[in-house]
């Protein structure tokens, strides 16, 4: 981290103590969000999210595959994340870092736990199912990767189509059938700076974040949570942030449904 980053981080910490943010946002405001869905025609589903400068492209491919041995009646879901070397001067090419693996697995857990995809609808015949591959491409890092990636994944799934199955093959020219989406999960991540939690931290803020807490909900239930970094959260803080996450759900859900129209 450069000296300027460190000075900025200290400034952000001092602001936090006064209940302020460096970009004058409210504690629980998202930065501007935009979603462009269906932008990669060759993929079965796609969406690019811009969340305050963080850009994540989610691409979905649907392939013929074999079911897992413990779930012979269901299709498969797999989520991967790539922190592309172009996305930040701190990212390097190479095998997925623990940060990338955590990102993919947290997004995966939300979608899976909320049963967003009807995996049983992806069963074709004994030993043959559809496998849904979600790849999260981080094009530009500007903080809060988890919420941006979660939104991109959900929006991409919501546009996703399933190829026609004919003579044991996937016919990608005919993708008239939509992937059956049963639920929509949204993600909110709070960064704790100097004892105060803020939603949707920017890159500058993340240099000052001690602890983070991600809460994913479908509006009815909490579906997945992940605490990250070294800072801790009190039981009361967790309780308060769960309320904030439910509050944010309706708005985030609207972004997803609007994008896929």
């Amino acid at each position: 981290m450069s000296a300027i980053d460190l000075v900025m981080a200290e400034h952000i910490r001092q602001l936090a103590a006064q209940g302020k943010r460096v970009d004058a946002r409210g504690d629980f405001d998202f930065r501007p969000i935009s979603i462009a869905a269906g932008i990669i025609d060759n993929a079965e589903g796609s969406a690019e999210v811009d969340m305050g400068g963080t850009q994540v492209l989610a691409g979905v491919k649907v392939d013929l595959g074999e079911p897992m041995s413990d779930t012979p009646d269901r299709g498969n879901l797999s989520v991967s994340a790539e922190l592309l070397p172009m996305a930040s001067p701190d990212y390097e090419a190479g095998p997925p870092s623990p940060t990338a693996i955590e990102l993919a697995r947290v997004v995966d857990r939300g979608i899976r736990a909320a049963e967003c995809i009807d995996l049983e609808s992806l069963f074709i015949e004994e030993g043959k199912v559809w496998s849904v591959w979600i790849d999260l491409y981080v094009l530009n890092y500007s903080g809060n990767l988890i919420d941006a990636a979660g939104l991109a994944a959900m929006a991409a799934l919501n546009t996703c189509r399933v190829p026609k199955y004919e003579d044991g093959k996937a016919v990608r020219e005919d993708r008239s059938k939509r992937l059956k989406i049963d639920n929509i999960v949204t993600s909110t991540t709070f960064g704790k700076i100097n004892g105060r939690a803020f939603l949707d931290t920017s890159a500058e803020e993340e240099a000052a974040v001690d602890g983070r807490l991600t809460i994913q909900t479908d509006g009815e239930l909490i579906r997945a949570m992940q605490k990250g970094l070294s800072g801790g959260f009190s039981v009361q803080e967790v309780s308060d942030l769960v309320d904030r996450s439910f509050e944010a759900h309706t708005n985030l859900k609207e972004y997803i449904t609007k994008a896929s129209k």
Partner: peptide
């Protein structure tokens, strides 16, 4: 959990919980 102040240092969860379930679970652990 850090027992001196009951701060939560690791929290992972999936499935489905109401907020009441969550708080009950956390309190059981503490």
């Amino acid at each position: 959990v850090s027992p001196r102040n009951n701060e939560i240092l690791l929290l992972q969860m999936d499935g489905g919980l109401t907020k009441d379930d969550l708080m009950k679970g956390i309190n059981m652990v503490v």
